[in-house]
Amino acid sequence: MSSVLLSVEKAEVVYKRAITAVQGISLSVRDGQIVALLGTNGAGKSTTLRAISGFLGLDDARVTEGAITFDGHRIENRPPHEIARRGVVLVPEREKVFQNLTVAENLAAPVPRAADKRRLEDQIYQFFPRLADLRGRVGGLLSGGERQMLAIASALMCRPRLLMIDELSLGLAPVVVQDLTRRLIMIRDQLGIAILLVEQSAAVALSISDYAYVMENGRIVLDGDRERLNSHQDVQEFYLGQSDGNGQDSTTARRSYRDVKQYRRSRRWYG
């Protein structure tokens, strides 16, 4: 099996010296693996991503416990540009492209200037042929899907070894998402990089990931490979919106996720 690229061990993140948002989570990403991080709003997914990519300082937050290791180097609480240069690159959820720079300039701005920059650029235009046609267009005038492509493309210009994508499918049509996931697998296969997806749409994430973690209230509550999660009853019910196994139809039996979860938990605890 391939070696572990990124490992988060029992990390705890505290905001404003007062509020704990992530409580001792552990996860790992291996070389060439696509890993998904699932959870509802407020589960702590974004905080985890920020902790890995070094953006906590801006919100007066820091990793107080545990370790984040990338390729043998400790990276917790390091500045973002340093982490990016090590090869951990994030595609953020919002404002993912430089709006006033053209597509070509967006691809030229990233700092680790590879010697074979031209070749890399050609390769990227192969992954996203659409971008080649838009070279001179300003980032702010792109559609949502094009923007996501450009964001991934400019992230690839940093020569990442781990690409992290925050909400790949957010606000995009299912067709576009399908196209993007196909290209992501292509990118993984050709460049041999690992990908960490943070998603609310479990269906999308589980369709391409090799392994997935489910977060809730700042903790990881469930993890496993695709097959295990896909067949896990809780995941089916609450994240995939399928029937809960009693033959009820998903549209009629869609209950509030939290309520049922709570109920199921207490049933587990109290027998």
Partner: peptide, 25 residues
């Protein structure tokens, strides 16, 4: 200029610029 372009990029979207390896400082 290369750094001039980075200055424009950083001015527009500092978070993203940092993500792309530009040392904001």
């Amino acid at each position: 200029g290369r750094w001039g372009m980075r200055m424009r990029a950083a001015g527009q979207n500092p978070l993203l610029a940092a993500q792309r390896g530009i040392n904001l400082h």
